[in-house]
Each structure stands twice: as C-alpha cells, then as structure tokens.
Amino acid sequence: MKTRSQIVSAAGLVSLVMGAAALIVLVAGMGTAQAQDASQASCSFLEITATSGEGGIDPALAPLATKLGKPPFSAWKSFKLVARHDQTLTRMKVQDIKLSAGGKLGVLFRQHTRAQGKKDRLSLSLTLDDKGGKRALDTKVHVDAGDYFVIVIGQSADKGHLLAFTCTAK
C-alpha cells in the first residue's frame, strides 16, 4: 500500500509531465499559420483588356509583367488597364464592384493569416455576375499579401477581359 507522500509525489509528477506537454504543444504551434484579427483589407482591383495584337504591357501594369508573360496569359501580346477600383474591405462584409464591361464583382474578406517566416495571407470569396445578373463565378482564394492574383473573367476569339487584384491587411 502506498503512503500519502508517495501519492502526492506521483500526482506532482503527473502535473509536471502534463505541464511540459502543454508547453511543447504551445511552442510547436508557434510556427504554424495563425488567424489574425485584422478587421479590414486594402485592395486594388484592376480590369485589364488583353488582345493578340501588338502593343505590349501598359506601364500601369508593370507590377504584373512577369505574370502576364507566362501561360495562360502569354497567349495575348497586348495588355491595357481599363479600370482600377481601390477598395477597403471589412471582414465578413460583401463589397460589390461594378465592372466597366458590365456585371459586378462581389468580394468578401474572410480571413487574414500569418505564419512565422512567411508572408501574410488573405482569404477572399469572389463572385462574378454577368451583365444579365447570371452568376459566372463563385470561388474562394488565398493570396499572399501584396502579391497579384490574375483571373480571366471574359474571353472572345482574340480578346480577353482579365481581373487582377492585390490586397494587404489593415
């Protein structure tokens, strides 16, 4: 039969082991992505017309030159900025943006995450409605803060309508 001091000593040892395990879990989790409390994001949405004719890249699109020079965008030779929409997005509140070609883009800032040694990331939900109000796109994207994300939102034989955007947490 165990004495009272042996029982207390065993309980202390269990507490010490449990505390050490909790500390290891806490320290190990520090390197993983953590949800942040940024309540707003500052974003720029760029509407771009792309054509197969010569013309190069509009100087206003210089930060996108590398992305536009790679497939699938490299199929076009000329890129011109049509409209720029600078928006401040509030977390979990949809912001509608009227597009120059008609239709609208719905944007929802969902989350801001940060991982040690990596760029901040933002999660957005995007919806695209055409001129007639028909839903053409409904997706969720994760983008590095300050990087551009480019999608094709309309296309004909030799012409494309692109949307590029970049965001940072506020």
Rank of each mutant, 00 (worst) to 15 (best):
A10H: 02
A11E: 12
A11Q: 12
V14F: 13
V14E: 05
S15M: 14
M18D: 05
A21C: 05
V25H: 03
L26I: 10
L26G: 10
V27N: 05
M30H: 10
A33T: 04
A33F: 07
Q34P: 11
D37K: 06
Q40I: 10
Q40H: 14
S42P: 06
C43T: 08
F45N: 07
F45P: 02
T51Q: 03
T51K: 02
G56D: 00
G56V: 00
G56E: 00
D58N: 03
D58G: 02
L61Q: 00
A65L: 08
A65Q: 13
P71A: 13
P71Q: 10
P71S: 09
S74P: 01
A75F: 08
A75H: 05
W76C: 02
K77A: 07
L81V: 11
V82Q: 11
T88L: 14
R91Y: 05
R91C: 04
V94F: 10
K98G: 11
K98Y: 10
L105Q: 03
F109C: 04
T113M: 06
A115K: 12
D120I: 07
R121P: 03
R121K: 12
L126C: 03
D130W: 01
K131A: 13
K131C: 01
G133T: 06
A136I: 15
L137H: 13
K140S: 15
D144G: 08
D144W: 04
D144R: 08
A145W: 00
G146Y: 01
D147M: 05
D147P: 06
F149K: 08
F149Q: 09
V150P: 01
Q155G: 05
Q155M: 13
S156D: 11
L162G: 01
K170S: 09
